[in-house]
Simulated assay, not measured.
Amino acid sequence: MDLRHLSVKPLLVAITMAVSAAAVADTETSAPPSEADVRWQTLSPVANLYLDNAPASEFMAQGDEEKSRWNNYAGALAYYLMATERDPYSSWAPYQAAAALAYLRVPDQADTYLQLADQRGFWQYITMEEDDELAEITESSAYNTLLTNAKLRYPQHAQDVGKAYIHLPKGTAPADGWPVLVWLAGYGTEGSDSKDLAEVLTADKAIFIGINGTEKLDDHRFRWARTDTESTQQAVQQALALAAKSAKLDKKRVALMGFSQGALHSAHLLAEHPDDYCGALIVSAGGMQTAMTAAAPKGKRVVLSYGEAEREGNQALDKKLASYFSKDNQFEQHTHKGGHFFDADWPAKFPKYVEQVLGL
């Protein structure tokens, strides 16, 4: 059965147009909002996106919003189904539709959309393996076939894991070589997309290296391994070796900087490989490897920054890292009033933190 041209348009358009007509009829009067008004207000966004000929990406974004913000899986499903039709090549849209259907306990339809995702070349097996929305159908043939095929496709799509962006300063290198700041981005972001960050943080004072995570979640979305940090160490060392082909590096002044999961990995690398790094700028640490089993390093330059409005678990981790690094190191701790993000003044503050950890 060829599922690639499976159409959901007749069902959704019929629903939205019928509700639209009822709403228009009611709103022509001055009466209080009717049930039709309320129901149309709920359904109108999907109809309006359809009528505006919006791309699949906008349907997907709205579906994600319905699910994450409102826990509205049925509403999210409508958007995912429309995205599935709008982009006949997208494998992510039918996959998300399948996950919503599985969560809503409609297993047969969920299997149908998993098969469609497979036909369209779905490869994001890391996400699929950890997706608890699919818990009800993990024993199905469609689920296991898709997972197997996604694992086979993954290497072709993940050739940019660990990819490094190297920003070389202008001018002549110092006698000992250029200091180096290595950027480990947060979960779900792209470390090599860091030109603007490099220009703000290091300018022409040091080499800046941004690195993609070692596991790929989707196009332009990466993460670091959840259960080990050695793959991160290997990626960093490979990036440094690549940079050394173009410029002289000061190996005594190589520092790490990370945000969220990248911050936690930065802390681990500094602790577990103290001979390789002089310090770290740890920004809003988060992640799973919270146990620091190695002995705390000594003589390092460490700056820790996090928000006072972050969730309790992240604050506890940051305070743990503060206790871990504060003894026998040049340690600074800075907080801001916000949450799990760079504070508004980071372009002014962070270059100073970088100078501290690199000893500039």
Rank of each mutant, 00 (worst) to 15 (best):
D228E: 15
D228W: 07
I207N: 00
F259L: 12
S246N: 15
V236D: 00
I211Y: 05
W224G: 00
L240E: 01
N212D: 06
A241L: 11
E230V: 12
A206P: 02
K245H: 12
E215D: 08
W224H: 07
V236G: 00
A243I: 00
L201Q: 04
I211R: 03
R221K: 15
S246M: 14
A247V: 06
A243R: 01
S231Q: 09
S246T: 14
L240D: 02
D219P: 06
A235Y: 02
D218R: 15
A239C: 11
Q233N: 15
T232W: 02
G262A: 12
F208H: 02
L256K: 07
I211E: 01
R223C: 11
R226E: 15
V254W: 02
F259H: 05
N212A: 11
N212E: 08
I209M: 13
K216I: 07
K245D: 12
L249K: 06
L217T: 05
K251A: 14
L217Y: 02
N212Q: 12
D250P: 07
D219F: 15
D250K: 10
I209Q: 09
I211L: 08
L249F: 08
D228M: 14
L256V: 08
G258C: 08
R253M: 09
D250C: 12
K248D: 06
T214F: 01
A243W: 00
A239L: 09
D228K: 13
G258T: 04
A247F: 04
R253Y: 04
I211M: 09
D204E: 14
A241D: 11
A244Q: 08
I209E: 04
R253G: 01
G213N: 06
R221I: 06
Q237F: 01
G210M: 11
A244I: 02
Q238E: 13
A247S: 12
